[in-house]
Write a protein that binds this DNA or RNA. Sequence first.
DNA 1: GTTTAATTTGAAATCCATTTTCAACAGGGG
DNA 2: CCCCTGTTGAAAATGGATTTCAAATTAAAC
Lengths: 145, 145
Amino acid sequence: MEDTKSKNRFKDFLVTQGLKSTHQRELILEEFLRAGSHLSTEDLYLRLRRKNPRIGYATVHRTLKLFAECGIAEQRNFGDGQARYEASAHDEHHDHLICVVCGKIVEFEDPRIEELQIEVAGGLGFSIERHRLELYGCCSDCRPA
Amino acid sequence: MEDTKSKNRFKDFLVTQGLKSTHQRELILEEFLRAGSHLSTEDLYLRLRRKNPRIGYATVHRTLKLFAECGIAEQRNFGDGQARYEASAHDEHHDHLICVVCGKIVEFEDPRIEELQIEVAGGLGFSIERHRLELYGCCSDCRPA
DNA sequence: GTTTAATTTGAAATCCATTTTCAACAGGGG
DNA sequence: CCCCTGTTGAAAATGGATTTCAAATTAAAC
Ligand SMILES: [Mn+2]
Ligand SMILES: [Mn+2]
Ligand SMILES: [Zn+2]
Ligand SMILES: [Zn+2]
């Protein structure tokens, strides 16, 4: 399958927002869906340049923000100084495990942790809107034997 | 009590690192300990300027980094684009709950969540070095009645 | 106290990801 | 087509973090 869902969602988004469907936006969405996840604006920009040198960084940046606004992408920040984007696949939430040695990123989701977060926040009078959970450590590949 | 612990620790740190004890470093540490937690470099800089207009932003910045290096402060990043520092009181870890309306920051620590993080990471072959957990929501003061 | 070598300071410059500007350009309804 | 409006991309601006460098300060050595 070829991610028709995201493409349609973006198309609808453009229409309802009175925005235009452009060649660049199509190219960027195409490459964004093709490429692996957690890539920075720069990453995506460079990939796009290979095939189409006429694309501008500003357009890639603006289009990624549109993706996030429309809900087909999410911005992440792993503390390396540049924002990263990933396709919000399947509408399911997940958190991240990041290897501080090789940079590998593993996704996980644990309902028990999610539940405890709500409980703890509730006990302090907060209703949670969103959260950020990142675990930094060393993956099995990088662990000294 | 007047936080002699942090002051001594910093003093020792300067000696062992071959660094010098200066008037500015003392002023900055004094004000850092006096002021509330989670303040940005800019925040601290402005507070210091009130009493002592001769202090430079660069010095505040460098000194805060020294505090973090020496272990009496920790840098935090709550996604508002500027780093914040807090005194690492009592050597005990905690996470944060942030009100998206008024910006209030509440600290918490839940051993069950900490434990689950280790368990989940272990199941994926990771050993955790550190983590970041921030809950964003609405506090009781800001909740629509 | 004086000299000396090394570190520190702070204003200004630089860095660097992000965001904005703006004139040229493209889309798409009429 | 036309026209209006949204879009593009090169370049400039932004803003927090960091570095530069000459002058000032510190602390150890005379
Ligand atoms: Mn992910
Ligand atoms: Mn805190
Ligand atoms: Zn690794
Ligand atoms: Zn609040």
